[in-house]
Amino acid sequence: MGRRGLAAGALALLVFMTACGDEAGPRTDAASNENGGLSTATLENYRDRILPTPAEAAWEEIDWHPSYAEGLRESSRQQKPLMLWVMNGHPLGCT
């Protein structure tokens, strides 16, 4: 099911909850000399590297309701199932 199918098939909702961080395994990060490299010439390149790509950010095009109560009311009104996405930190981004 594509994104459009998802949006049509279920109401979407996100709720802010404080919870624990991810359990990702260990990784090593080589110290980089990039931190001093930001300039007007490199700004756009850095911006494009940091921002999610349009494909990665496709979920942001869904008209999420930011509160549980709003989602429940819409679910009842439209007689559609509700999808609740619960994450820590900013609930619109998986941290």
Binding site: A10, M17, A19, C20, L72, R73, S75, S76, P81, L82, M83, L84, W85, V86, M87, N88
Partner: peptide, 21 residues
């Protein structure tokens, strides 16, 4: 959320839930 994948114990409730009103 207590009905979901983490049950009703302590700790996180992170995840996706599909539910009715």
């Amino acid at each position: 959320a207590n009905q979901g994948h983490y049950g009703g114990g302590g700790g996180t409730r992170q995840g996706l839930y599909v539910m009715t009103a």
